[in-house]
Each structure stands twice: as structure tokens, then as C-alpha cells.
Amino acid sequence: MSRSQELRSMLRESSEINIVCHNNPDPDCLASALALGRIAATAGIDERHIFYSGDISHQQNRAFVNLLNVDLKPFDTAEVEDRPPGSLLAFVDHSIPGRNNTVPPDTPVDIVIDHHPAEDIDARFVDHREELGAAATILTEYVRALEVDLDSDLATALLFAIRSDTLDFLRGATTVEYEAAGYLHDHGDPELLRKLSSPSVSGGTIDAISTAIDNRRTNGAVLISHVGRTTERDSLPQAVDYLVRLEGVKTAIVFGLVKESIQISARSPDPRVHVGEVLNNAFGDVGSGGGHHDVAGGEIPLGLFADYVTDDGQLLDIIEQVITTRLVAELNLSAEADGSELT
């Protein structure tokens, strides 16, 4: 039995599916959730729910939800704690309860479909392919194998997700992504794809990127910066995507204060640096961090910082020193950067 057939068999034995997106879901996660919901519908499941935690703040993510009319609901722990018999819990584009989601740790999970590096994944059905560039690639394979009706909205969602997660096939794309995109292209809506690809940018995002540019410090081929406090969480990956293009920079890391946590985003086309491992090693004891060798993210609760410092300026100074010191140590950098100390 193929994995797609195995999945459909499990779905046919169930009456409800709760698909949980990771915190602040991106197009890959959202499109994968849509596709899994569509597959569940063809298997006879009428009760289908897509949940998320955090915020949908990135302009592309907001456009995705609005233009495709994605029915999302804020996640509540009661959704997984009080599930009736026959109800399934599914993760797409992430895999571990409590990591990049607000599902309580040790919660039993039924379905995991993911492509991010992870260990100790525990679920009844697992399709975990780190070698692929997008979770949407896996869901496209299922849709095709199971002959699910592929309307233009779903095709466009999956195609945009693959393009987005691979930076238009420049990052982590495999022949499987190209094959999936070729299949989806014939069913997609070019005008909708154009709208998804070029949404307007908020002033808060521009301000955060500008702050990151002003605060940048380089040490050899490594750039570290911060956006200060921002309500635009997704300005961090946008800032780091911009700064890693700076001449001479091979690794860029940007952090910032978002609500009650420190968010971190990292990029590194340098094959000698695995930024997922860098963030995990540097901050795994105080928060979470990880990802691919070239793309990674992390989150640290403010905790004691917020308890003892109420002024944002002082708080940011302390956080900048602590974050930078850990990164300098993990990356084996010297203490000097463009004439200014990083530590």
C-alpha cells in the first residue's frame, strides 16, 4: 500500500480531522492544510478544521488567507484535549507537539506530513521527507495519486506554496518540486498567482527592515542585526532575506522583540554553516531553534528579561548582548565586527 493509500485508509475510518498549522503559518503550511482537508473530504470526513496559533502578519500570508478564503480558527488546547472518538489530529509542515506550535507536549498525534529536520516524530502516520523543498510537494503527490478534484484555487495554492518555500526554485528545490509544479501549472490561475506574489507591504514591515539595516554588524562573512520591537513578526525573515544579499555576507541572523518573545531568523548559503544547528545549539537551552542548513528560525520567551527590566531600551540592550554573545561563541567568531564589538 502506498503512503497516499495508507493515508486515505486512515481517513476513511475517521469522522473528524483537526489540522493544526504551526505558529504564524506560511503559504506552505496553509496550502498543505487545505490539500489535506480536501483529501479528507473525498474520504468522507465532513468535520474538517484548520487551526493556527500566533499571528498571520506577513503580507503574503494575509493575502493567501484572504484571496483563497481559507477558513482558519485560532487554536485552543481544548480542541485536542476534548476530541471525540474517531477524531484525528494532524500536523502539516511541522511535526512535534510544543515545537513551533502551542499543542501541549506529549499530545498524541495521528498524522504528520513535514519536510523540516526533526527527530523522534511520533504519530500513527508519518511522511517526513527532509530532502524535499516543501511540504506542499508531498500533498501534491497525494492529490495526484488519489485523483482528488484539483480546482484552480487548490492548484494555485499548492503551486504558490512550492514557489514560496523554495524561493522560486532557488532554495532546496528538487526534481520532485519541478514535477509537482508542472502538474499544478496546468490547473492554476495565473492572475491569482500574480496577486499572491505581489501583495502590498505594511509601513511597519518597512520600518523594521530599515532598523535592521541600520543596526547591522558584520564579522567576516557573518552579519548580525535586530529590528528592535515590532508587531510585524514576519519582517524578520524579510529583513534577513535582504541583508544576506549584502556583498561579502554568507550568513545573516536577525532578531527582534515580538510581543512576549524574542524571534530569530537566519539565512546562510554558505555550505560550511548549518544555521539550523547554530540556532539550536545557541538557544535550545532557553527556547527553541532549528531548521535547514540555509534557512532557520528560533524563539526565546522573554522570561526573566521582562521580569527585571521594564524599559524597552534597556531590555533590548541586554537581549542584544546575550543573543550576540551566544551567536559569536557558536559561530567561533572574534569579538570585533566592523570596528564595533559584538559582545
Results as ranks from 00 to 15, higher is better:
residue 156 T to K: 00
residue 122 D to E: 11
residue 159 L to K: 13
residue 119 E to F: 00
residue 124 R to G: 14
residue 154 L to E: 03
residue 125 F to A: 03
residue 173 A to F: 08
residue 165 D to R: 08
residue 149 D to F: 11
residue 122 D to S: 08
residue 148 V to R: 02
residue 117 P to N: 02
residue 160 F to E: 02
residue 123 A to H: 04
residue 116 H to V: 03
residue 129 R to L: 13
residue 120 D to L: 07
residue 132 L to N: 09
residue 132 L to D: 08
residue 124 R to I: 14
residue 164 S to V: 06
residue 162 I to Y: 11
residue 149 D to I: 14
residue 123 A to K: 04
residue 127 D to Q: 12
residue 126 V to N: 00
residue 120 D to C: 07
residue 151 D to L: 02
residue 151 D to C: 02
residue 149 D to T: 14
residue 147 E to W: 02
residue 116 H to Y: 04
residue 148 V to W: 01
residue 167 L to T: 13
residue 163 R to L: 12
residue 155 A to S: 10
residue 153 D to T: 08
residue 143 V to L: 15
residue 118 A to D: 09
residue 155 A to W: 04
residue 110 D to H: 12
residue 158 L to I: 04
residue 140 T to E: 11
residue 110 D to W: 07
residue 121 I to L: 01
residue 158 L to G: 00
residue 145 A to I: 14
residue 143 V to M: 09
residue 132 L to C: 11
residue 154 L to S: 03
residue 122 D to R: 07
residue 131 E to H: 13
residue 134 A to M: 10
residue 145 A to V: 12
residue 163 R to F: 09
residue 171 R to K: 14
residue 159 L to Q: 13
residue 138 I to P: 08
residue 158 L to Y: 01
residue 145 A to T: 13
residue 142 Y to C: 06
residue 167 L to E: 15
residue 124 R to S: 15
residue 166 T to A: 06
residue 130 E to I: 15
residue 145 A to F: 11
residue 165 D to W: 07
residue 152 S to L: 06
residue 142 Y to K: 06
residue 147 E to Q: 09
residue 164 S to K: 09
residue 166 T to W: 08
residue 133 G to Q: 13
residue 121 I to Q: 00
residue 139 L to K: 05
residue 115 H to C: 03
residue 151 D to N: 08
residue 115 H to K: 04
residue 140 T to V: 12
residue 127 D to E: 14
residue 171 R to V: 12
residue 171 R to G: 08
residue 143 V to D: 02
residue 129 R to E: 11
residue 148 V to Q: 01
residue 144 R to S: 15
residue 154 L to C: 05
residue 132 L to M: 13
residue 140 T to I: 12
residue 161 A to I: 07
residue 157 A to N: 01
residue 136 A to V: 05
residue 112 V to A: 01
residue 111 I to P: 03
residue 157 A to M: 03
residue 110 D to F: 07
residue 134 A to V: 09
residue 162 I to F: 10
residue 167 L to I: 14
residue 138 I to C: 10
residue 121 I to W: 00
residue 143 V to A: 08
residue 174 T to W: 10
residue 152 S to D: 12
residue 165 D to G: 09
residue 126 V to H: 00
residue 111 I to F: 06
residue 120 D to I: 04
residue 166 T to S: 09
residue 142 Y to Q: 05
residue 116 H to D: 01
residue 162 I to T: 11
residue 136 A to L: 06
residue 143 V to R: 04
residue 166 T to D: 06
residue 140 T to R: 07
residue 113 I to H: 02
residue 112 V to S: 00
residue 168 D to A: 14
residue 131 E to A: 12
residue 160 F to D: 02
residue 140 T to W: 07
residue 133 G to F: 11
residue 140 T to K: 09
residue 125 F to S: 03
residue 145 A to G: 10
residue 110 D to A: 06
residue 117 P to Q: 02
residue 125 F to L: 08
residue 146 L to A: 01
residue 126 V to T: 04
residue 132 L to Y: 15
residue 130 E to N: 12
residue 135 A to I: 10
residue 127 D to K: 10
residue 164 S to F: 15
residue 115 H to R: 05
residue 127 D to H: 11
residue 174 T to L: 09
residue 110 D to N: 12
residue 123 A to P: 05
residue 143 V to T: 13
